[in-house]
Design a protein around this nucleic acid. Sequence first.
DNA 1: ACCTGAACACCGTTCAAGT
DNA 2: ACCTGAACACCGTTCAAGT
Lengths: 194, 194
Amino acid sequence: MTQTRPYHHGNLRQAVLDRAAVVLRERGAAGLSLRELSADVGVSHAAPRRHFADRQALLDAVAADGFARLGTRLREAVDAHPRYADRLRAAATAYLDFGLTEANLVELMFAHQRGAGGAQVRQGATDAFEPLLDVFRHGRQEGVVADGDAERLGLLLVATVQGITNLVACGVVPAAEAGALLDAAVGRFPGAGA
Amino acid sequence: MTQTRPYHHGNLRQAVLDRAAVVLRERGAAGLSLRELSADVGVSHAAPRRHFADRQALLDAVAADGFARLGTRLREAVDAHPRYADRLRAAATAYLDFGLTEANLVELMFAHQRGAGGAQVRQGATDAFEPLLDVFRHGRQEGVVADGDAERLGLLLVATVQGITNLVACGVVPAAEAGALLDAAVGRFPGAGA
DNA sequence: ACCTGAACACCGTTCAAGT
DNA sequence: ACCTGAACACCGTTCAAGT
């Protein structure tokens, strides 16, 4: 029977990040408060300072986490299919799904990176998009993508799907139309079939 | 010689919006504070309440203003050219220019609309994009756009350019590459030429 | 090494009161 | 009608102090 211990669990950093993910989903990035997260997690308001230098550092960590998760999803989607056209569609669909179910997270991930931690977030983004570039590199081997076009097509796919996600998230396009819009967009890429 | 008047100028609402535009450019939406704007404009911190019910209402008004300005730019770009292909390129370029010079504003405009004022902002967005739909309606008359594709192509153009703007704003794509990426994107639209 | 608790300067929001 | 000034409950950030 130990008395209520004044010190916290082994991994305060992860506990704060986990709680932040929940609050982010419910109320968006503007609703993330270090003081509230600290209280939720049962620690004094200044405790997270050991793990996050300031509020922006917490947001950066959440964003970097988001890109890591997105990258994993994209990799899984691409690896699930052997052929270029299927990989393209699967990757685009996985991205849109992620954007629709995690709208607040994606908004945070793609927010303007102002602080010192921006470099880390940008690197996370670049890594996450690597599977998409691989799709077009693979397409080049199949002969449907021209030499030297892989990177540009990859960025164009990211931009297009991100744009659709953004339009849905901000309410300009109904979520029900997102799929049709994505099909039309993907269909315009080289070698996508019909 | 009147003494220092306790009351403010004729249009506090516009004065606050003007000052908000400056602060937004310098520090982003997170840096907008009703108290600071009030002080900047020489009024008590509670005075803007007559014109903006709360902070979100101010952000909504700034966003709606932004869409109105974007709509004007797009209309001018489209009207400057008689032919479909030129209109398409001019509109896309005008959008990207706006996004690069007003990155913080665009981020605010396309942020998730949570409150009651969201409907007003969404309507502003829809109105602003109207010139782009007109481009494709015009393309249908020239015979390069298929029947019933105008709206979908318009949303696709918005999504694509918005996505490129977003990637540049968050630092994933260097601003210097944005033009080439936009050219590649626009060139994939029907009837855009080479 | 990790956390607490007080302190400071800021917020948004509300509301009675002034002119 | 429009604005002020005090009040309240929140913030982020800093820092001496505890274990």
